[in-house]
Simulated scan of single mutants.
Amino acid sequence: MRRLLSKLGGLAAATMLTLGLAHPAQAADPAYFEFTDITRERAVVRLDDPAKIQHARDLLSGKTDERPHLVGRIVKRQASYNPRWSFHYNPDTVDFFDVAIEVCDATLPYVEDHLDEAGGAFLPGLFWCPWSSRLVREVPAP
């Protein structure tokens, strides 16, 4: 019996140690980046994921030139940090890419002008991947 309790105690201690070390990744404060496209219009994207924030900063610093364009699902409503436009990227869906399919490509003004059509044949699933998008600078939080 003593042996069984020792084994169970050791197992419990190992489990608690493992759970204690397995902290989920700490969420970073959101970061905001201004981006542009071929029209030279500008908008702001919010990033919440620490790895994506770092990738954005690496793009701006010139540390990398891989995956320079933005992709994500848009929300058809204005965001406080992006007041010029009637839409914004859902921060949970934003990522970066090198090459994407044509069906999600559109400029900032085109998306604004055709927002009522977005989610159908235009920008299916509300996914937007402007091929000419590029980050311009990091901006302060609103």
Rank of each mutant, 00 (worst) to 15 (best):
K63V: 09
V44E: 08
P130S: 04
K7L: 06
E138L: 04
A14E: 00
R137F: 05
T93F: 12
L60T: 00
P130Y: 09
F96P: 14
R73Y: 07
E138P: 01
A100M: 15
V71K: 09
L108F: 14
I101L: 15
A25W: 09
F122M: 03
R42V: 11
A118D: 04
R42M: 07
Y89R: 07
S80R: 15
H69N: 06
P50Q: 11
D105C: 13
D29T: 12
K63E: 13
A27H: 13
T15H: 00
H114M: 14
I74T: 07
K76A: 12
I53P: 03
T15M: 01
R46G: 00
D65A: 14
L19A: 09
P142G: 04
W128Q: 05
Y32A: 00
L60H: 03
A13D: 00
R84T: 13
A22L: 14
V136H: 09
F127K: 14
K63A: 13
P50M: 12
R42G: 03
H69W: 03
A56E: 10
E138A: 08
R46Q: 15
E66L: 13
L60M: 10
H23F: 14
A28G: 06
V71D: 02
T18W: 10
W131P: 02
L11E: 02
K76P: 12
V71R: 05
Y81F: 14
V44S: 02
E102T: 14
R42L: 08
Q26L: 11
N82G: 04
L70N: 02
W131M: 06
P91N: 10
N90I: 11
P91L: 06
Y32P: 01
V136W: 12
P140C: 02
D48I: 15
H114V: 07
A106K: 07
K52S: 03
V45H: 10
P24V: 14
A25V: 15
F127V: 14
G62L: 12
G125Y: 04
I101F: 10
D98W: 13
A28L: 10
R134S: 08
L59P: 00
L8Q: 06
